[in-house]
Computed example of a mutant assay.
Amino acid sequence: MKMKRLYSLFTMMLVLALFLSACGTKKDENSNKNGGAPEMLNVDLKVPEQADKGTTVKFDANVTQGGEAVKDADEVKYQVWMDGMKDDSKMLDAKNEKDGHYTAENTFNEDGVYYVQVHVTARDMHNMPKTKITIGNPEAAEDHDHADGDHHDSSVDIHFMKPETISANQNVTLTAHIMKENQPLENADVRFEIWQDGSDKHEYIDAKAASTGQYKSSYTFKNTGKYNVKIHVENKVGLHEHIEQTVEVK
């Protein structure tokens, strides 16, 4: 009788152990699926390679994360400029098609080679692939494209995510998203150079990689007014790029 009780108790413990093991395995599977680092934000940019001058061209960006459509992007804008004239670029608001696609249209009125870059901000991430489109006479566009190599647009793209509001004497997070040839740039040395407009005092703040292609640092602006922020990007193979932006501190 005693042996029978011990056998029953052993059987119950074995069943309980198997049940707990199965639950633990299920929990681990869910953790691997839902926990850990979030999936990268993927953007598939579709722009025709060529179009006639004066025609309206449609741009389409398909935004996904982990294979699923991102229908709730915070902001999607298209930036368009002629080769060598990025300072004169224009920004277009994208239309959310509610299925992960974000579209815009633009009419090109001059022959030439143009860049189209989409800036997608969603789920605390940013992606900004770009491509080229030739408008009008391909030979004329090619001549323009090779007219002056010093003015060709860099394969490195730096995007500074300005804080929505900056108050004096309050710590803020500075974020830079960096891509090279449409891929997030890893293992880069990134610094923020900051100085108030009209001042000769420049401060250099090292940024740390927060995720793939994303670099962050924190800083406290001591005074109100206009500040300049220059982002320096370097790596061990000789890369050195930078952009300069301005922010207003209240």
Score class of each variant (00 low, 15 high):
residue 118 V to A: 06
residue 47 V to T: 01
residue 99 D to G: 13
residue 50 Q to K: 14
residue 60 D to E: 09
residue 93 D to M: 12
residue 83 D to M: 14
residue 94 A to Q: 09
residue 87 D to K: 15
residue 110 E to G: 01
residue 131 T to D: 05
residue 119 H to I: 15
residue 117 Q to I: 06
residue 87 D to H: 11
residue 132 K to C: 04
residue 84 G to H: 07
residue 127 N to H: 00
residue 103 T to H: 00
residue 113 V to H: 03
residue 79 Q to K: 14
residue 120 V to M: 06
residue 128 M to H: 05
residue 87 D to N: 12
residue 93 D to A: 15
residue 112 G to D: 08
residue 117 Q to Y: 02
residue 119 H to L: 15
residue 116 V to N: 01
residue 129 P to M: 11
residue 70 V to R: 02
residue 112 G to M: 10
residue 47 V to N: 00
residue 110 E to F: 12
residue 53 K to L: 02
residue 54 G to Q: 01
residue 92 L to P: 05
residue 81 W to R: 11
residue 111 D to R: 06
residue 68 E to C: 03
residue 99 D to E: 08
residue 107 T to W: 01
residue 84 G to R: 02
residue 46 K to M: 10
residue 43 V to H: 02
residue 115 Y to N: 15
residue 128 M to D: 01
residue 43 V to K: 02
residue 64 T to R: 08
residue 92 L to W: 10
residue 95 K to E: 11
residue 91 M to F: 12
residue 70 V to D: 06
residue 122 A to F: 12
residue 65 Q to A: 12
residue 91 M to D: 10
residue 45 L to D: 02
residue 114 Y to P: 07
residue 57 V to F: 03
residue 56 T to G: 00
residue 45 L to V: 05
residue 120 V to N: 00
residue 70 V to I: 15
residue 112 G to C: 08
residue 53 K to M: 11
residue 114 Y to W: 12
residue 75 E to T: 09
residue 84 G to F: 02
residue 114 Y to F: 15
residue 50 Q to W: 06
residue 71 K to S: 07
